[in-house]
């Protein structure tokens, strides 16, 4: 037992902030991927021919049934095995993005199904085609109605992004580990990292609340 001394953190403050910045970058880019991918998967599962829909459903089933950590290992090491050497950062974004795309797809699919059939009839009666109706009328509404759980997934993504430190991406946890390897002060650095996550989490929650209020106006 060596006692606690948080002043050891000070010299590494910049390192931790850079880590936090990369955590934010990871969250935003993987979040964007998970959103677009979620819409894509939902539409495929609902409307694509079976030959496309079934593999996507199987992929979703596997992603929902296995740990993110395992998926990251598989993407990172698996791609190397088949000769695709992607940088760890790209593997992390793709892994996190796909993982949460699957959860978003599940939500958006239910949201699409829940849009009143009168909306489709209204659009079709004007002369919109199936895809135009989906794109301009049904999907925008499905996304508005499912904004809270999709936002919840983004918050989960922020925290789960810590896992990509295991494949060597220089985000917040990785910064803390670097500092610990020089100072041997895990408690102080992990608590500081936790505090930074907590702040990022608060900022993200506040941003989502603002966005939801904005959406609420147009309903």
């Amino acid at each position: 037992m060596q006692g606690l001394d948080f002043t050891v953190v000070a010299p590494y403050w910049d390192l931790l902030l850079i880590g936090a910045w990369w955590t934010a970058v990871l969250t935003v880019s993987a979040g964007a991927l998970s959103f677009v991918g979620g819409i894509l998967f939902a539409v495929i599962v609902l409307y694509a021919p079976k030959i496309v829909a079934y593999p996507v459903r199987a992929l979703m089933w596997v992603f929902m049934g296995t740990p993110l950590l395992l998926q990251l290992f598989l993407i990172y090491f698996g791609l190397v095995q088949i000769g695709i050497d992607i940088p760890a950062l790209a593997a992390g974004i793709v892994g996190l993005g796909l993982h949460f795309a699957v959860y978003n797809a599940d939500i958006i699919r239910a949201g699409i199904v829940a849009v009143d059939v009168g909306q489709t009839e209204g659009a079709r009666s004007i002369g919109f085609g199936k895809w135009q109706t989906l794109r301009h009328v049904v999907i925008p509404q499905a996304i508005r109605n499912t904004a809270p759980p999709i936002g919840g997934n983004l918050i989960a993504l922020l925290k789960e992004s810590s896992i990509v430190s295991v494949i060597g991406i220089a985000e917040l946890v990785h910064s803390a580990q670097l500092a610990i390897s020089e100072t041997f002060r895990p408690f102080e650095f992990y608590i500081t990292a936790a505090a930074l996550y907590y702040i990022l989490n608060l900022v993200l929650e506040a941003a989502l609340r603002r966005f939801e209020r904005h959406v609420e106006v147009s309903r």
Binding site: K159, S165, P186, F187, Y198
Partner: peptide
Amino acid sequence: SLFRGTPCLIQLFVLYFGGPQIG
């Protein structure tokens, strides 16, 4: 709020690696 607001991974690290520092 604390346990939901921070990553599970960090919580494990604080407990396992940081624990010895506080006995």
